[in-house]
């Protein structure tokens, strides 16, 4: 493994100071499940690794109807996966975290790490964005909050500036009669990167959908909102014809690439299929 300097700060401020001092040469490490593999395979060569696992204020998983869900930077994916409250209140998040790697990986990996890694195909990003998640950020200039929908700027790139750390993410409480879903399309059932991922959150108002959010993963440089499809559904019943239209609209908005996993054309077609299925699944859950 490529050599690097290693730090274990014990406070957020110390971590920020280290990060600010070493700038682009430094990598923050929480679970390390992506970072260490990338260092071993020489895909990244950070001069400095800052392990934040010793920072006490970064843990904490809180989930209830009144306050929503708050996930500290060090909370493991497995902790979220095994939380009964998360499964009940945020089924799409629960579905997505189960898709990450293996149980061994999920015991180490953190959800906030998955967010900050900003992979276009990350499973948790579409449902988190659809749920209206906000990132709590601390940095040399103080604290700020950024909705995840505005957090990603490209593959592996975010709005974080030098010295900034995401200390937690927060999801608002689910609305009454809300439903959410995440559907992943891959080549096998586990240990897989999404070829396409679609998350939907919506609210049932009688026979029609409200507050529809449709987020597409792995079909653009960042997760993207399928806004045209959302508008088609807003205030409408999700009948088969409407689902078909929404699927086509989402398909048109996707910008997938060709690679060894799938062709762009296939990915686009799957956006349509998965969007229809994800809307139907989310709607099912509102009843």
């Amino acid at each position: 493994m490529h050599p690097f300097a290693y730090f274990e700060p014990t406070t957020v401020d110390e971590a920020i100071a280290l990060l600010a001092r070493h700038g682009g040469d430094a990598q923050l490490m929480a679970g390390g499940t992506d970072l260490l593999v990338e260092i071993k395979e020489s895909l990244r060569r950070p001069a400095v690794v800052i392990n934040i696992k010793k920072v006490p204020d970064l843990g904490g998983l809180a989930c209830d109807e009144a306050h929503g869900l708050r996930i500290g930077a060090l909370v493991t994916v497995r902790a979220i996966e095994t939380s009964a409250a998360v499964s009940r209140l945020y089924p799409a998040i629960a579905e997505a975290v189960r898709e990450i790697g293996s149980i061994q990986i999920r015991n180490r990996a953190t959800l906030v790490g998955n967010v900050c890694r900003a992979s276009p195909s990350a499973d948790t990003l579409p449902p988190l964005i659809a749920a209206g998640t906000v990132a709590a950020i601390s940095g040399p200039g103080g604290a700020r909050s950024v909705p995840l929908g505005e957090f990603f700027t490209g593959p592996g790139r975010t709005v974080l500036t030098a010295g900034e750390i995401v200390t937690a993410i927060a999801l608002p409480p689910p609305a009454a009669q809300a439903g959410a879903s995440y559907i992943k399309h891959g080549r096998r059932r586990a240990m897989e990167l999404a070829t396409v991922g679609v998350a939907v959150s919506l609210r049932r108002d009688g026979d029609v959908c409200r507050d529809v959010r449709i987020v597409l993963g792995a079909v653009a440089p960042t997760p993207i909102r399928a806004t045209a499809a959302e508008m088609l559904l807003e205030g409408r019943a999700p009948d088969p014809a409407r689902l078909e239209e929404a699927g086509c609209a989402a398909q048109d908005q996707s910008r997938p690439i060709d690679n060894v996993r799938a062709s762009a054309a296939y990915r686009r077609a799957m956006v349509g299929v998965l969007t229809r299925r994800a809307i139907a699944a989310a709607w099912e859950r509102t009843t």
Binding site: R187, A190, L193
Partner: peptide
């Protein structure tokens, strides 16, 4: 690599 060479696993 096993990232993009996919063998069926237990779940499959």
């Amino acid at each position: 690599s096993f990232v993009d060479y996919k063998m069926p696993l237990a779940m499959d």
